[in-house]
Design a protein around this nucleic acid. Sequence first.
DNA 1: CCAATGTGCTAAATCGATTTTGCTTGCGTG
DNA 2: CACGCAAGCAAAATCGATTTAGCACATTGG
Lengths: 338, 338
Amino acid sequence: MNRVSLKDVAKKAGVAPSTVSLVLNGKAKQRRISDTLAAKIQSVAKAAGYQPHPVAVHLRTGQSKILGLIVESISGSFFAALARTIEQEAEKYGYKVLYCSTENNPLKGRELIQMMLKYQVDGYLITPAPGMEKDIQQLVQDGKRLVLMDSYFEHIDTPYVLIDNYKGIYTCMDHLLKKGYRKIGFVTVDLELVQLQQRLQAYHNACKAYKIPAAQQPVLKIPYNEPAKNITRHINSFLSRHKTLDAVLFATNYLGVAGVESFTHLGLRIPDDLAVVCFDDHDVFRLYPPGISALQQPIADIAKAAISLLMKQLGASKGKIGKQQIILEGRFIQRKST
Amino acid sequence: MNRVSLKDVAKKAGVAPSTVSLVLNGKAKQRRISDTLAAKIQSVAKAAGYQPHPVAVHLRTGQSKILGLIVESISGSFFAALARTIEQEAEKYGYKVLYCSTENNPLKGRELIQMMLKYQVDGYLITPAPGMEKDIQQLVQDGKRLVLMDSYFEHIDTPYVLIDNYKGIYTCMDHLLKKGYRKIGFVTVDLELVQLQQRLQAYHNACKAYKIPAAQQPVLKIPYNEPAKNITRHINSFLSRHKTLDAVLFATNYLGVAGVESFTHLGLRIPDDLAVVCFDDHDVFRLYPPGISALQQPIADIAKAAISLLMKQLGASKGKIGKQQIILEGRFIQRKST
DNA sequence: CCAATGTGCTAAATCGATTTTGCTTGCGTG
DNA sequence: CACGCAAGCAAAATCGATTTAGCACATTGG
C-alpha cells in the first residue's frame, strides 16, 4: 500500500525532486544534467519501483493520458479487434484507453460521451453510429480532439480513418463478374450513411460496366438495428423471390453472417447453388464450409492511422499535421465460395 | 474554457479559499462560520457556476468518487436495468459510475478489473461470472471495497446482494403444482454456481413435497456460454424427448427466451400444449402472446441495497455496518402462460 | 484589570507531480 | 584580476482542492 513518490526517489538518490522529474521525463540532456547522475537516478527509480501518480500528473499537466474509445458493439469481431489494436498503439504513446460500446443505442452513445467528458479524456476515438451526429458536432465545437473511424459525417469537418468503400465493393464485384457470375444480388442496410451509399453506388456502377441492365440488379435493403433472426428472415424471402441469382454480395459482415444462417436454412450449397462474397471479414466466413470470400478491412492499419491522427492533434507526435482524412484499401480474401 | 476555481469564488466573495471550501463542504456549522457569510458564499458559488475540479479533489482526498460496475452483459435487460438504477443511486451519494460488461468473457473481466484499478475507483460492484473467482479474491485481499450482486462465491467472504433463489423457484413450482400441473420439466444451466444449485434443489424439493417420483423430474442442463441457437436446439430436442410434459420451468431468463423461440419452432401453443414459467423476468415474456408468467427480480431493491452496502464500507453512509449479506425476495408475476 | 474562554475567520501545509527561476561553482577572456 | 558565461543542480511556484493550526478580537469572570 506504500506508493513510492517522486520525493522518496529523490531522497534515496540524494538529489532534489525536480532533478528526478527532469531525468525521468527525458529532459536531462536539454537541462544539462550530467549523464552519470541521470543514470543513477534512473536506476534508483527502477529499483524503488517508482510509478508516477496519474492523478497528480493529470492535475499538474492538465492531461489525463486517457483516450475514450466508443464503438458500436464490443462483441462484434471488427470492433473487438479494433479495440485491441487501438489499446496497443495507445500504450506506445503512454495513453490508456477507456472503451465502451453503445450497443447500437444512440442514447447510450450520448451518455458515454458525457461520461468521458467527466473523466476528462484527452481525445476521442469513435465509430459513429447514426444518431450520434449532434453529439459529435458538439464535441468538435468544444474543441475536443477526436478521430472518427469506419464512418464519418459529410458535413462535419473531422479527421477520420476508413476503408475505401467504393473501391472495396467494386473489387468484390469485379471478382464475381470476372468469374462469370452475372445475376448478382446485393444485400445492404437501409441507412443514409455515406459509406453505405458508396457501396451501393459501386455495386450499380460495376453492373453497368458489364452491361447488366438495371432491372437485373436486385438489391435488398434491411432495416437498421433489426434483430438477427429478422435479418435472416428477410434474406430468406429475398433469396426465394430471386431464384435465378447465381451470386450474392453482402455489404456488411453481420449481414453476411445472417446470410450464412439463411443458406443452411434453405439448404443452399455454396458455391454450387450460389456464390457469396462479403464486404468486411468475419471468423464465421473462415470457418463456415467451404469458406466465404470477403474483403478484409485492414483493421490494424485503421487503428494505427487513427491513433496517429489523434496523437498529432494532441501534439504528442513529432510529425506535422498533414492530411486529416485517411482512406485505406481493403484486401480481397479469396475462399471457396466463389 | 474558463473553469471557475475555488480561489475565484473566494476572491469574488472577498474571503479566504479555505472558508469557501468549509462552507461548500457543509462544515460551516462545525467550524462556526456565521450563517450570513455562509449564505453569501453559497450564492456567490452558485452564481459563478463553480464546480469543484474532480482531479484536484481526488489528489487531495484520495477518493476518486468513482465506482466500478462490472456486469456480465450490458445488453441483457436485467443488467441494463440494474446499471441504470445503480447509477441513479450512486449519484445521490455523489459518486459516478464507470460501467463495463465482460460479455461473459472471464479474460475481459480481468482486464476490466485491471483498468478500474488503474483509474482508482473507490469501490466495485460486480455480478460475478464463473472464472472471475480468483480476481475477486485478489480484490478482497487487497482490501478493496466491493459488493457482489446476483451471485457470490461460497468461500470468499464478501458482502453481496441477491435474490432468494430457493424460495423463488419454490414459489414458481408451488404455483404450477397448485394449478394442477404434475409433469414439469426444469431447464437450467450446467454450472456449479451456488445459486443454480439452490434453484435445482428447490425444484426437486417442491416435486418431492407433491409426491412426484424422482423419475418424473426431467431436468435439462444446458452448457454455459452456449450460443443462442444451440440453446434453442437443446430445448427443441428436450421437449421432443419428453412429449408428456405439461409445464416447463426455466431457471434463467435467457433460457426462457430461447425457450420461446423453441415453442414457435415446434408450433406449441401456450398454455394449452404447455404451461411456462421463468425465473427472472424479461420484456419478451410480457410481449410474447399470451404472456409468460415469471418470477420478477426486485432490480431496484438489489441496486439500492448494493449501493447502500458499498457506501457503508466507504464510510459515506451514516448507518452502522450491519449485515453484509442481503437476500431479497422476488415477486411472482402471473401471466397467461399458466 | 488581566487572564480565560469563545467566536469567526485566515494562513499555511498538504496531496504528488511538473516547470520555471535562481544559485553556486569553475573556467576562459581581456 | 575582475567580469562574463556556462554547467549542474536546487528551490520554489504551480495545478485546485482539503484540512489543521492559529490569529485577532470580543466577552466574561475573579
